[in-house]
Amino acid sequence: MKLHELKPHAGSRKDRKRVGRGPGGTDKTAGRGHKGQKSRSGAGKGSYFEGGRSTLISRLPKRGFNNVGVTFEVVNLASLDMIEDAVTTIDRNTLEIVGLVRRKNRPVKLLGNGELSRALTIHVDAASEGAVKAVEAAGGKVILPAAKTESAEKAE
């Protein structure tokens, strides 16, 4: 027996049903009956539909405060201390290469968890007061983006 002579057993393979392709039982309406919502393409109401009444999520009480604030990528001082000694300036690109920052659409915030043993210049979007003091105590500095003022906005 050769590869080109191989065939499946008789009756083990069956062609799929091609509806709406001419006479033969599944032509014309293609097994969907006549007219009505379910006969149209894209038919159906989705699993969330509850027969016209208000959906469950809109019927439940809303409580508390939903803070739609900024979510930061957090970097701690302890993790910065693990970066090799040759690096003295740390910015977002460095943090991405090292693997401390993953999501590109989130700003980076420096937190003061841990200790810093060497002087570093750190460029981040935000930093806690404790983190800034710890970096300055180690002889480095934290550079934050300049906050927009009203006069700067009017100039634009």
Rank of each mutant, 00 (worst) to 15 (best):
A126K: 04
H123M: 07
D15Y: 03
A134R: 03
E115D: 06
N76M: 10
G25L: 14
L56M: 04
S117E: 11
T29A: 14
A155I: 12
R32K: 14
K104Q: 12
K109Y: 01
R63C: 04
H34P: 09
V98I: 10
E115L: 03
G20S: 13
P107C: 01
L56F: 04
H34G: 05
F72Y: 15
V75M: 04
I143N: 08
A147K: 11
G51V: 03
K17Y: 00
R63T: 07
H34L: 15
E129V: 13
L116F: 03
G130K: 06
R103S: 09
T149Q: 06
K35P: 00
R32W: 08
E153L: 14
K35N: 09
H9N: 02
V101D: 04
K2F: 09
S79R: 15
R32P: 07
L110N: 01
G112Y: 05
L120I: 08
S39G: 15
P61G: 06
S128Q: 08
S128A: 09
V124L: 06
I90G: 05
R59L: 10
R118P: 10
A86C: 09
R13W: 09
R118H: 14
I83A: 07
A131S: 06
E84H: 11
S47K: 07
E50G: 05
V142P: 08
F72M: 10
R59K: 12
F72K: 08
E129P: 10
T121G: 04
I83D: 00
A138P: 00
R21D: 10
R63M: 06
S58G: 02
P61F: 06
V19C: 12
A134G: 00
T55S: 02
M82N: 15
G11V: 06
T89Y: 11
I97L: 15
G22I: 11
V70G: 08
R118S: 11
D85A: 14
L95V: 00
G31Y: 04
T89C: 09
V75T: 00
R118T: 09
S117M: 07
V98S: 00
A86Y: 11
K35C: 02
G46R: 04
L144I: 03
V124R: 00
N93F: 08
G52S: 06
H34I: 14
K38E: 13
H9S: 02
G44K: 02
H34E: 11
E73P: 05
R102N: 11
N113C: 03
V124K: 00
R106E: 02
A137R: 15
L116T: 00
Y48R: 05
S58K: 08
I122L: 02
K141N: 10
R106D: 01
A78L: 10
E129I: 12
S128N: 05
I143T: 05
K62D: 02
V70M: 11
K28C: 13
S79A: 15
E5F: 04
M82Q: 15
E153K: 12
S47C: 02
